[in-house]
Simulated scan of single mutants.
Amino acid sequence: MNLKAGSLVLGLLALGVLLIVAGVLVGSSGLLGLQDDGASLILWQIRLPRSLGAWCAGALLGLAGATAQGLFRNPLADPYLLGSAAGAGLAVALTLALTGLSLQASGTVGLLGLTGMAFVGTLLGVGLTLLLARGVEQTLRLLLAGVIVGVVLNACTDLVTLRAPDILRGMQAFLLGNTALLGWPSVAIMGGAVLVAGLAAWAASPALDALALGEATARSLGVPLARMRLILIGAFALATGAAVAQTGIVAFVGLVAPHLVRAATPARHGALVLLSALAGGALLLAADVLARGLLAPQELPVGLVTALLGGGYLLVLLYRRGGPRR
């Protein structure tokens, strides 16, 4: 890791700490101090785990985005590429329709059940993609299989919501992203996923460096591509599944975070994965603080904020790169 990348790590860590402090102090009811027991309870049992959970979810999406873009050698790849989000959405829709639960009032047991089903759905979507692609050897086949699986599973989700229109409100909260229900169990789950997926992606990052030179070159360098792809897809699926299961579908974080890092400093994939995770955590937490404070006491869906910010960034990037040439 070069000096510039090291400085960026320290800067993103400091930004993350500042945003966590802001997330603890800022809510839909405004600034909050420690004047009484009720305020202390809100700070330490609601706002702090929510802020830490939002950072962890963003870190998972940033890590997954950097891994996907390196694996598919496509800067437009995002964490939802292999049918993971579509699988999670279908699983949540089926659970809501069959059990009558709601995201807002299902209680701890119900929320744990929804989280578990969303994760199972994520694994189902990725598994179907791998089955349709006949393994991990062909990158283009994997990409096309992910698109097909996503379209089919999204159509199935639409059928479920048509049959059970009462779940539309809950599904809307899931599809727009929701950090309001994050607690200490969510922080523990996503923190563990960040550690495991991050270590796996970092260990396999030399394969991403070799793949950037082309598959033929990577093979000539002796890189075991099939095994490395399997490890990377496993890390990618774990990171995406853990984030989606806890926060729903949050747009653009996994796509934009690696772009911001590449714009700030050139880095090999080992550093890029770490920096993208830190940038993704800061992005989602900043969006969460904005979602709470912009229209207080009403909260905006965090996925709506990330879509506006991420879409605006990509439009500016597109304009700069596609401007008139002389």
Rank of each mutant, 00 (worst) to 15 (best):
V187W: 01
A216R: 15
P185I: 12
L181W: 14
Q172R: 10
L230S: 13
G170N: 06
A201N: 12
A197Q: 05
L225R: 04
A239T: 04
P185L: 09
L232N: 04
Q172N: 07
L211T: 07
M228Q: 14
G222S: 07
T179C: 13
T179P: 13
S205A: 14
I231K: 02
R219N: 14
L182A: 00
L211Q: 02
A226I: 11
L176R: 03
G183E: 09
L238C: 06
A200K: 13
L181T: 15
D209W: 00
L211A: 03
L232T: 06
G198A: 01
A239N: 03
A218C: 03
M171I: 11
A235Y: 08
M190N: 04
L168W: 06
G198V: 00
A188P: 03
P224T: 00
P206R: 07
L182F: 00
S220C: 10
L221I: 03
S186Q: 10
T161W: 05
A242N: 08
L199N: 09
I231S: 10
D209H: 04
P185W: 07
V187M: 00
T217D: 14
A235K: 08
S205I: 09
L182H: 02
A197M: 07
P165Q: 03
L175W: 12
A242R: 08
L168K: 10
D166L: 11
G222T: 05
V160I: 11
I167E: 00
A216H: 15
A239K: 03
L225E: 00
I189Q: 12
S186C: 05
A207F: 06
L176F: 14
F236E: 02
P224N: 01
G214D: 02
L182R: 01
Q172P: 00
M171H: 14
G241A: 06
G241W: 02
L168T: 11
L181S: 15
G241D: 01
A173M: 09
L168H: 09
S220A: 14
A210Y: 15
L182I: 02
A193P: 04
A207V: 05
L238N: 04
R169I: 14
L221Y: 04
G214T: 05
A207E: 09
L213T: 11
D166H: 08
I233Y: 06
G241H: 01
A197L: 07
G234C: 01
L211N: 05
G170I: 02
G192F: 13
M228H: 12
N178Q: 15
L175E: 14
A218P: 04
A201G: 11
D209C: 05
L168N: 09
A180T: 13
P165I: 00
A197C: 07
A188N: 05
V194R: 06
R163N: 02
L162N: 09
A180R: 14
M228A: 14
A235F: 08
A203H: 15
A203E: 13
P224L: 00
T179Q: 12
V194S: 09
L208E: 04
G241P: 05
R163A: 11
G222M: 08
L168D: 05
L176K: 02
L199V: 13
L230H: 13
V187C: 02
S186D: 13
L175F: 10
P185R: 10
L168P: 08
D166K: 12
A201E: 11
V187I: 00
S186P: 04
A210T: 12
F174V: 08
L199I: 11
L208R: 01
A204L: 02
A204K: 01
L208V: 04
A200N: 11
M171G: 13
